[in-house]
Design a protein around this nucleic acid. Structure first.
Lengths: 187, 187
DNA sequence: AAATCTTTTCATTTTTTATTGAAAAATTTG
DNA sequence: CAAATTTTTCAATAAAAAATGAAAAGATTT
């Protein structure tokens, strides 16, 4: 686990005196450590994200924003989670890419602020579309080309292999149906 | 990617002369390289497995067995996929643990033989039960304890935080419903 | 348009995960 | 029950993934 986040999650560590490199300290001054509630929710989001194959820092950012009553800047995110500039930037980019997080206009603020999408329907819908469906289609295309490779197999196996490939195609088709069912459930 | 599997997938490489360490050469003699069809299906299984968070070698083993008209021994799996003893042993263990592969009795054979479970209903059902459901329950337990942490938050935020936590609990409940729906679809 | 501030990029470093293979354990055979 | 064979375990290594932070690029202000 990212040791900085581990630290942020476990120890109510005191904030380091030095500003993170390349950015000047937040105007407000001290960044408070994560509260117990925040630690829990950030941890939860990290685990949930990992199931979907996201880096821990990405889940952590989402968790922090989800529990924040006001939009946060990238700098605040960095400081509170104790992650680097690069992680914060890339994590936010990834979260924006599937609309789990959106930039919000904050009047008079120079820095960009972010807030979490809290409609999980949308979140999950996007994920199913972008990730799962894409994979299914890719697999479907591959499967199409396989039948003709059977000719290169020993004659004795061909019928059996044909059955197996057919079964794979059924699975693909059923997976699409299941996906559609899930989409309906979410709507 | 595991370079040996990469090799096995791409080059119709000639079998190495030396027997793999610790095992004497297969009685039948030469192990044929993967056929084009096998290469495709093994690759497909690797990718599918990765979506579920499995190591590539595990997906590869399943793919090879899925396309094999007869049960294979661990040694045959090692040789054909060109993976190590340890990977084969651990991969088979993992596959057996969620019943994607089962040992088959082959009369007169000393070595254990394996075949792939080809009923994807069962496979997916097991996966949903063991992995997804377990995670949901874990998350559910965590969520239960969070409400009392709200007391430690600034009073001004408490109502808002309560709403957010409530939403999370709804999501958890809905996810369970969705899981039940999927189970019904599979049956 | 120079200076200042903010964000992105990306080569390097760190961390995590997967693989290997020798040794230990278990099993089977004679 | 000893020898031979097969399977599992696990410490070491290799490969892959994530995080870091300095430098480049992009904005905004004065």
């Amino acid at each position: 686990m990212l040791s900085a986040i581990k630290t942020a999650l476990q120890a109510p560590a005191r904030r380091s005196r030095n500003a993170p490199s390349g950015l000047r300290p937040n105007a407000q001054g001290a960044t408070p450590p994560l509260s117990p509630l925040e630690r829990e929710v950030v941890g939860l989001a990290m685990r949930a994200g990992q199931i979907l194959g996201l880096p821990k820092s990405v889940g952590a950012i989402y968790g922090l924003l989800y529990l924040s009553p006001r939009p946060l800047t990238m700098e605040e995110i960095m400081e509170r989670l104790r992650i680097s500039l690069g992680s914060a930037s890339q994590g936010l980019r990834q979260l924006r890419s599937f609309k789990a997080v959106r930039p919000v206009y904050v009047p008079g603020a120079r820095r960009e602020h972010f807030e979490a999408e809290d409609q999980f329907r949308k979140l999950i819908g996007n994920f199913l579309d972008d990730e799962v469906n894409a994979q299914l289609e890719l697999a479907g295309e591959h499967l199409g080309g396989l039948a003709k490779l059977i000719e290169h197999e020993p004659a004795a196996n061909r019928d059996w292999l044909r059955q197996r490939l057919e079964k794979l195609e059924n699975v693909n088709a059923n997976a699409r149906r299941l996906l559609a069912l899930m989409a309906r459930f979410l709507a």
